[in-house]
């Protein structure tokens, strides 16, 4: 995966609200928000809870367990900086806590399927460690 680290591609836009998310990944931890009032887990980061609008969001460590809701093998990337590693896979990742995020999927040359089990896999993309996922070694349902 050294290829990914060498890419010249647009990275995250860092700001105080999302710092926990990106810094957490760099530290090897998946962090999302949780509402103390209504209990909902929230992705992407918000200033207040988008479910109940309480000013009660805290940062928690997510389990990293997830399933693949959908995926695409990208042959012609939308940004030319990704061309050196095409084809590659991106997917919609449904976290065990509930929210869905989009991420880069490491397949280890296996073919992904909708519903596959994923594991959190922090990965260097373009010199920054991002919260990616990998197809789990377990037998997928």
């Amino acid at each position: 995966m050294n290829d990914l680290a060498q890419l010249k591609v647009p990275g995250p836009i860092y700001e105080p609200l999302n710092a926990h998310f990106w810094q957490g990944a760099a530290d090897g931890v998946l962090k999302i928000q949780n509402c103390v009032d209504c209990g909902a887990y929230v992705f992407y980061p918000r200033p207040i809870c988008p479910h109940c609008w309480a000013d009660a969001l805290t940062w928690v460590r997510a389990s990293g367990a997830a399933t693949l809701k959908s995926f695409s093998v990208i042959h012609k990337p939308g940004h030319p900086g990704w061309a050196p590693v095409a084809p590659y896979v991106v997917g919609l990742v449904e976290l065990a806590e509930g929210p869905t995020m989009l991420s880069h999927i490491l397949t280890n040359a296996r073919t992904p399927t909708v519903g596959a089990t994923l594991a959190f896999a922090p990965t260097d993309i373009g010199g920054r460690v991002l919260p990616c996922f990998t197809l789990s070694e377990e037998i997928n349902q």
Partner: peptide
Amino acid sequence: EFDTPFGASGANTSYAL
């Protein structure tokens, strides 16, 4: 902010998903 860094930019990716 949360799609592009992972290699997903543009409508093609969204509709492929």
